[in-house]
Design a protein around this nucleic acid. Structure first.
Lengths: 160, 160
DNA sequence: CGCTTGTCGTCAGCGTGCTGACGATCGCGC
DNA sequence: GCGCGATCGTCAGCACGCTGACGACAAGCG
């Protein structure tokens, strides 16, 4: 071990800090997603929201946020953008008037269809550099870490 | 196999999309980092910039951005914040007057010292849920993916 | 010398993600 | 019925990260 004194910054290279690598990989994935899907003007988060909204029509914003791991404030912004583009609608709840139910419109379904193939490519390319035994291990480890840390932040997933 | 028609969104669960997991893990790490270091008012990106600026005093903004994988526009914002807090200085270059050389001030070094231990904990906790053989494999895979995708986006690392 | 090309820092603008706060509403206990 | 706490959506404000554009400057070329 070293003296706790030794804080020589180059000794603790950025490239070995897990959080640093995760941030960079996220940037890389977003760039690849933009390359594949940019012409459609949809971001990864918007794609996730459309996917869940298609699978569970009428879901209210709070639950939708839990499904996609998006903070309710952020979700309101993103959904507002998608609504203004005519991809979905927000309807105030009848039983509980606090809720706003989100439902895809035809353009939203069409967008999902158009995105299926390019989005699949973007996700595949993100982990393409790993050869097969490692890739599966990596993705499993990723799932483990996300499940373990799910309670952190405002955007905890519902996790079934 | 399915008809390409079948776009049933729940069939392609969010939780198996690599990019989705990476985004969530990044959120989780940021939350853990805030929990450990929030009282110091420093974010992960700011910590990376301070680290590199300490190791390579006088580095200009462009190179600094390449070292930390931060777009030059974003870097200008972050550095401006750190400067306004007195943690570093920006000095216009003498030889090349386009450049702005970034150098840590004493408060910046003190901040790095104060952050060393909590930041180390935040990074460790991010991958804590993996037991040892898998953790090393995961981190190596992360490095491989970052190296492979480094050229994407505006924030490519210099990679030695 | 002047022109072109390229780099560096900056700006405006947008999207994601967080905090802290607020009004509106619901459910519970009384 | 009424108040109390909890929840839902929203707002203001801030930090990252990107695009496209711009002025300032450097370096190469004719």
């Amino acid at each position: 071990m070293n003296d706790t004194q030794v804080a020589a910054p180059s000794a603790w290279d950025l490239a070995v800090r897990p959080g640093f690598l995760i941030r960079r990989l996220h940037q890389i994935h977003v760039a690849m997603f933009a390359e594949e899907c940019g012409h459609l003007g949809i971001t990864p988060v918007q794609f996730s929201i459309l996917s869940v909204a298609a699978a569970q029509p009428g879901l209210e914003q709070a639950r939708l946020g839990h499904e996609v791991g998006v903070d309710r404030t952020t979700l309101a912004n993103v959904v507002a953008r998608l609504e203004s583009r005519g991809l979905l609608t927000r309807a105030q709840g009848a039983a509980d008037r606090r809720l706003k139910h989100v439902t895809l419109r035809p353009d939203g379904h069409a967008m999902l269809d158009a995105m299926a193939e390019p989005a699949r490519r973007a996700h595949a390319r993100t982990v393409e550099a790993l050869v097969e035994p490692e890739r599966a291990v990596f993705l499993r480890a990723l799932s483990v870490l996300v499940a373990a840390g799910n309670q952190y932040g405002r955007a905890a997933l519902r996790l079934a």
